[in-house]
Amino acid sequence: MLSYLIRRLLLMVVTLFGVSVAIFLLLRIVPGNIADILFDSAGLIDPAEKQKIVADLGLDLPLPLQYWQWLNGLLHGDLGFSYVSEKPVIDEILPRIPITARLAALAMIFAVCAGVPLGVISAVRQNTKLDYALRVLSLSGLSMPSFWLGLLILMACVRWFGTIPIYDRAPETFWAWLAMLAIPAASVGFRSSALIMRLTRSSMLEVLRQDFVRTAKSKGLSDTAVTYDHALRNAVLPVITTIGVETAFLFGGLIVTETVFNIPGVARFLVEAIRWRDYPMVQNLVMFIAVVVVSVNLIVDLLYMLVDPRIRYSE
């Protein structure tokens, strides 16, 4: 158990190192840097000034050196300064994290709470009209891009209710947060809920055919006990794994949804930073997201061990 944990943590470090190299290089491949953008589009500066900015920001240094400077800072807790706002990156990111974290958690809770029960219903009522309806719903959830869904929800709310909660300042109470984030969370979580629903359904169908379910029935247990105590516990194992994978996808959806619903979270901020080629901002934000995704996956795997005794004891 302990050796497994150590192995996993070491693997995490390797993964994060890989991510850091990838994001660093990808950003350098994207044409233009902040000096070019200021110079070209805005015409804010003249060529001499441009040279000065490049030199000031260290953009003329060799790439390995630039990478080392960033990584070294990162390891010492120094994330550097934003090119755009010239404030420390940490001060820019930190206040936005709770907003995105709340939205992401709410989206995932929505996905699981909608996906698992509907998947079970779909499996238990296999090949009924209800099952068909749920399958169409889940297929549409997988096919519909979340930005479009977000826009549709926005339009529908405005059309029917005349308004929609708009983020102008941070809500103060839990319920205010919930009211503010419920609609965006549902629109991000819809895709994951659809995936979880389909997975739960197929996993459940497989489990319901297994011998131990028949044994459970032969003991005289009610259908509810058989379905939930015996079958579902076995069927959620693959679903738990998916939750880890879906967290990564979730960030993709968050970027769009935060933009559509005007929520000042990390994800929207990232897009803004990319537009300005704000290297320290983008690099550190991506690293932050990577840490979250990798950690969630580790937690999911540990959770898996907790649920499935066969894995727990296999060492």
Binding site: F212, R214, T215, D229, R233, R310
Partner: peptide, 12 residues
């Protein structure tokens, strides 16, 4: 049942 390997719930 015939199959003691699969006839018991593995998670209980």
């Amino acid at each position: 049942f015939q199959e003691p390997m699969t006839a018991l719930n593995p998670l209980m």
